[in-house]
Nucleic acid binder design. Sequence first.
DNA 1: TTATTAGTTCTCCACTTGCAGAACCAAAAG
DNA 2: CTTTTGGTTCTGCAAGTGGAGAACTAATAA
Lengths: 159, 159
Amino acid sequence: MAKTEKETQLTKDQLQLIERMGVILEGGGLAPAPARVSALLLVSPETELPFEEISRLLNLSKSATSNAINLLLTFQRLEYVTRPGERRRYFRVKMMNWKEDMKEKFVAVGQMSAMYKEVLRQRPKSTPEFNRGLADMTDFLDHIVKEMPALFKKWEQKR
Amino acid sequence: MAKTEKETQLTKDQLQLIERMGVILEGGGLAPAPARVSALLLVSPETELPFEEISRLLNLSKSATSNAINLLLTFQRLEYVTRPGERRRYFRVKMMNWKEDMKEKFVAVGQMSAMYKEVLRQRPKSTPEFNRGLADMTDFLDHIVKEMPALFKKWEQKR
DNA sequence: TTATTAGTTCTCCACTTGCAGAACCAAAAG
DNA sequence: CTTTTGGTTCTGCAAGTGGAGAACTAATAA
C-alpha cells in the first residue's frame, strides 16, 4: 500500500508560537523536545499527528522524537489513536488531563504542609515566634487544600 | 576580640530531616546546596546562623555556601540580620514570604491561561471539539485565579 | 603596620542531560 | 522469502551544572 501522505505545513507564526510555548513549558519542568512536541500538538491545525510528522515538523531525530513521545505518554500528557488499516499511531494531547494535573498540584501543596508540620514537631519551644510562623504557614496551606474541592465544584456548576 | 563561638550541634535525626527536606525542595526547583541551607534554617534550634556555621553544619565548601546563600537572598527566601559589634551576618528564613510565593504561583497559572488563549486565537475553527477543550481549560484556570483572593481573605478572617 | 575575619570570586573537574546518528527489530507488504 | 514501514535502543558526544579548593579582597583587630 502506498503512503498517500498529506503533509501538514506550519506557518512561520505557528512555528514561532511553538518555540515560545516550548520555552514556557520548559520552565514547568519539561525537557526541550517533549515541550516542543506538546506545543506542536496544541498549535497544529491537525490535532492528531503521526510519529514521522512530529519528527519532520520539529526537525527532531527519530531517537529524540521517540523518547519525547514516550515520556509524554507515561506522564499521561499524550495519548494516541490508530486508524483502520494503518499501523502507525496518531498522537494527540490528552486534553482532559489538566484537571487531574491541577489536583496533583494541590496534593503537592499538602505534602509541603506535612513536611513543615514535621519540622514543627521536632522544634524546641524556645523559639515561639518562629514556630508560630511555621504553624501559620501550615495552617494556610491546609486551608487552601481544603477549600480546593469547593472551588472545583463551583466552576462545574457555573458552566 | 576573641571568637567566643557557641557552636550549634545537630542530632542525627535533625540531619536526616534536613536531607529529606532537601530532596523535596530540590523537587521544587532548588539546587542541592540552597535546598539544604533552607532546610537547615528551618530545622536548626538556632533560627539565625552565620555563614561559617552553615558551612560547617552542612559540610559545604565556602564557595558552595556563598553561592547558595546569595541565590536564596536574591530569591528573597532568606534575609539576614547583624548584631551590635559583629561584622558577620546572621541568616534566617524569610518566613512571611510564603504568602508572596503563593501569589506568584497563581500569577504563573494566569500566564499559562494567557498562553493557551493565544493558541486558541490562531487555531482554525475546523476543530471545534479540540478548541472547546482548550477554552474550557483557560476558563477553569481563570476561575481559579479569580477566586484566589477570596480564599486568602477567608483565611485571614478565620484566624 | 601586620594579622585575622568574613566572606567572594576564579579555576578546574566530575557528573548529568539531551540529542544525533546508526544499528537494530518486529509487523506488514510485495 | 525479501523489502518497507514504523518505530526502539545503543553509542557517543557537546553543552550545561554544581561544588571543591585556592586565590583573592575588604573590613576589622592587634
